[in-house]
Design a protein around this nucleic acid. Structure first.
Ligand SMILES: Nc1ccn([C@H]2C[C@H](O)[C@@H](COP(=O)(O)OP(=O)(O)OP(=O)(O)O)O2)c(=O)n1
Ligand SMILES: [Mg+2]
Length: 738
DNA sequence: GCGGATCAG
DNA sequence: ATGGCTGATCCGC
């Protein structure tokens, strides 16, 4: 009887997580079991486990019924597939995957430092969203009920969720991502892929200053305030003495370090990074040295294959607990086994799954980050105390419909397929769905249809439906307002907007586009070497410029590209060290505050060197402050360039010793610091469709600029979710021929 | 098109 | 006593 002792695979601790190596699984599982056996949840897990076993049994039968000829043929087909995969192998790109460490927990720790040394988790007694690394040593982890975690670790501190905080932090971090790849692909609040191939090319031209970033002064204050009693006395001198900038080199590893450094300075949180030639490898790599570490996977074919060979299949993105079990039953535990037992794979799984497995085994996956795609569904669900009264269920259903309807409005979608989800008190899941001819959007329609679906469900349960959860979802979505906008239509709409802005309201356009050269963080300094900065300790009220806070454009980057020796230093910090505000165009340095400098700069770039024109202030400020965020250096640069082009007298293009002139943007390159190759790279990027992509992406921001004000934080700052081209997520190996 | 199942975060 | 929520995908029918 495969009863009680073998069901553990579903219930047992998942130690497939950073910080959970070498735990006493025996002991931990015992405690988990003691607090699990007999529960309804457990009974349902036993059932699901049985289902998996059944699948395994059928797989084995199927395999045994195959002739040796069929098996040979399967190998032949697998090898053909492998050859095809090899042919398409592309190791030329560089992907970085960044993953924040114990994200929610780290945010809470940051705001309550006394938690740092304690075992701590975020969530509630019912469910934990994540745990810090101290708690992980007790076996406490994400997706574990709080009450069980408490048994594992009685001292565990459980902190409630604070979603808006995590979102805010996420926004900050994603702004940094955009600096390296405006097309970065965010998988969640705490994690993203960047294709830094182009950045690495461009970076070869960066000066040391451009590759240098400031330590956050605020952090130093906090540090010293913990250690010394007299902050006022010490801070200034100590800060001066302390090394205040950190420089980074040219390799992908350097870039990963730089990104993690900037994240840390900006948010006081740590992240881990993985570098590799594709998303599969980058993702695995980022987990390798967690927390607060990074791993680089070579882009040499043989090294990639070697790396994959001894990797447990469970580490691969689309392979979860069940897939691991199924494959394990075929003696496939490491990726190399996928190759060894390829004949079984070919005989049991769909071509799509086989391709995925073989590509994985060879270390191949997507190395192009997918462009933003529209959401495909929207849903909401709630768990509650057992409820078998229809009236009460309908009451809850109504509320769900209301919630969903609100979310639909926010997302600007309606849809044609309504799905009701129910979970019985025995944890049995069911869905009932219905499609309509016309998309539904109102609460009333949602309720009417879902009510009907619930009646169905009640009937199917012999009028005895006791629920612990209900959910309602909508798919086959369409936008609510306006005509269905295809990407290409949006794209041209955008181009029109930009053109219009430049022509009709030239000044506004230029102001709007140049604002991001400066932000409150970016201070001007007189020195060339970031390591020997001297300054007078100044202070800038962060509240004043809040909206603008991290819209950052790396002026040094601009200077590197166009041969201008600027005075800007890089900082992501919220505090400003120096109040010397210097116009990089005309050299004026008597600006009272950053806003004046910004205004002046706008005019200076138009060739009008004056700081009058304060009438426009309200408007100008609004635009300057709101047109921002994921907006990228490249976009700003482009706008900047068009401004220059429209006015060739601009000082910036007047560099000395020029040997090359870009035929597109007229910017000149100095032969002494620019090889022909890099010049060509620049021309390429001028022509590059990437610029178009950037514009496309900046859609929301642009429309904010051209139409209304404010709301920058809400929708405008939200980078839409992007996915990898290879859809590994939800990839299952379900299919087998039975 | 529907329902169940798997996966990620 | 207490076992989440959102979105996506795949498979079989
Ligand atoms: N089942 C899960 C898994 C994760 N999360 C949330 C909380 C996590 O903090 C965040 C990021 O997920 P990760 O898988 O990256 O886990 P952490 O960042 O917490 O830890 P680490 O990445 O260090 O392993 O997503 C969640 O709500 N439910
Ligand atoms: Mg993380």
């Amino acid at each position: 009887m495969p009863g009680t002792s073998s069901v553990t695979s579903r219930m047992a601790l998942n130690d497939n997580k950073a910080g959970m190596e070498g735990l006493d699984k025996e002991k931990i599982n015992k405690i988990i079991m003691e607090n699990t056996i007999g529960s309804r949840y457990y009974k349902n897990e036993v059932k699901r486990e049985a289902h998996v076993r059944e699948r395994i049994k059928k797989m084995k039968e199927r395999l045994q019924s195959c002739t040796s000829e069929q098996k040979e043929n399967a190998i032949y087909k697998a090898d053909a597939m492998i050859a095809e995969i090899e042919k398409g192998r592309d190791l030329t790109r560089t992907i970085i995957h960044i993953d924040m460490d114990a994200f929610y927990a780290s945010v809470e720790e940051r705001d309550k430092p006394e938690l740092k040394k304690k075992p701590m988790a975020v969530g509630g007694m019912n469910m934990l969203s994540t745990s810090n690394y101290v708690a992980r040593r007790y076996g406490v982890r994400a997706a574990m009920p709080g009450f069980i975690a408490k048994k594992l670790c009685p001292d565990l501190v459980i902190v409630p969720l604070n979603f808006s905080k995590y979102k805010e932090v996420s926004k900050e971090v994603q702004k940094i991502f955009a600096y390296y790849d405006p097309n970065f692909s965010a998988m969640s609040l705490d994690e993203a892929y960047m294709d830094v191939t182009e950045h690495l090319q461009d970076r070869l031209l960066y000066s040391k200053k451009t590759r240098s970033f400031a330590y956050n002064v605020e952090n130093m204050y906090k540090r010293s305030s913990n250690q010394t009693e007299d902050i006022q006395q010490h801070s200034s001198d100590e800060l001066m003495a302390e090394k205040r900038f950190k420089s980074f080199g040219f390799t992908a590893a350097d870039v990963a370090e730089e990104i993690r450094f900037r994240i840390h300075q900006k948010t006081r949180l740590t992240a881990s990074a993985g570098v590799g030639p594709n998303t599969l490898l980058a993702k695995i790599a980022s987990d390798f040295n967690k927390p607060n570490g990074q791993t680089i996977i070579s882009s040499l074919r043989d090294e990639v294959i070697n790396f994959m060979a001894n990797l447990p299949i469970r580490k691969v993105n689309g392979i979860g607990k069940v897939s691991e079990q199924l494959l394990s039953s075929l003696d496939i535990k490491y990726c190399k086994d996928l190759l060894k037992n390829r004949s079984s794979l070919m005989l049991l799984f769909s071509p799509v799954s086989c391709s995925f497995f073989l590509r994985t085994a060879l270390g191949c996956s997507s190395n192009r980050l997918e462009a933003e795609s529209e959401r495909k569904s929207i849903s909401t669900e709630r768990t509650f105390n057992a409820c078998s009264c229809l009236d009460e269920q309908l009451e809850k259903l109504k509320e769900l419909c209301q919630t969903l309807s609100n979310d639909m409005k926010k997302a600007n979608v309606q849809g044609k397929t309504i799905t009701l989800k129910t979970k019985t008190v025995d944890f049995e899941l069911h869905t009932r769905s219905r499609s309509t001819l016309i998309p539904v959007s109102s609460v009333e329609e949602l309720f009417e249809i879902s009510h009907d679906l619930l009646k169905q469900e009640v009937a199917l349960s012999n009028n005895n439906l006791s629920l612990r959860l209900m959910g309602i979802g909508l798919s086959k979505l369409e936008p609510i307002s306006g005509t269905t906008q295809t990407s290409i239509k949006k794209f041209f709409g955008k181009i029109d907007n930009i053109g219009l802005k430049h022509k009709a309201t030239e000044q506004l356009a230029v102001c709007g586009s140049s604002h991001s050269l400066f932000e409150k963080n970016n201070i001007v300094e007189e020195l060339d070497d970031p390591d020997e900065v001297d300054d007078k300790g100044g202070h800038c009220n962060p509240d004043e410029l809040d909206v603008l806070s991290d819209d950052r454009f790396n002026l040094n980057l601009f200077n590197d590209k166009f041969g201008y020796n600027g005075h800007q230093v890089n900082t992501d910090s919220e505090l400003v060290l120096d109040t010397t505000l210097l116009c990089p165009v005309c050299g004026r340095n008597d600006f009272e505050n950053l806003q004046y400098l910004n205004e002046h700069l706008d005019l200076c770039l138009c060739g009008k060197n004056s700081i009058t024109q304060n009438e426009k202030n309200g408007n100008h400020k609004e635009i300057a402050l709101t047109s921002k965020s994921v907006s990228t250096a490249a976009v700003d640069e482009e706008s900047y360039l068009s401004a220059i082009e429209a006015n060739k007298t601009s000082d910036i293009s007047d560099t000395v010793g020029v040997d090359f002139t870009c035929p597109i943007c007229s910017v000149k390159f100095n032969a002494s610091q620019t090889t022909l190759k890099y010049f060509n790279t620049h021309v390429d990027s001028c022509l590059n469709r990437k610029v178009i992509k950037n514009i496309l992406q900046t859609d929301s921001k642009m429309s904010i600029v051209s139409t209304t004000k404010a709301k920058a934080s809400k929708d405008g700052g939200k980078p839409k979710k992007r996915r990898k081209i290879d859809s590994c997520k939800g990839h299952t190996i379900d299919k087998f021929f039975s």
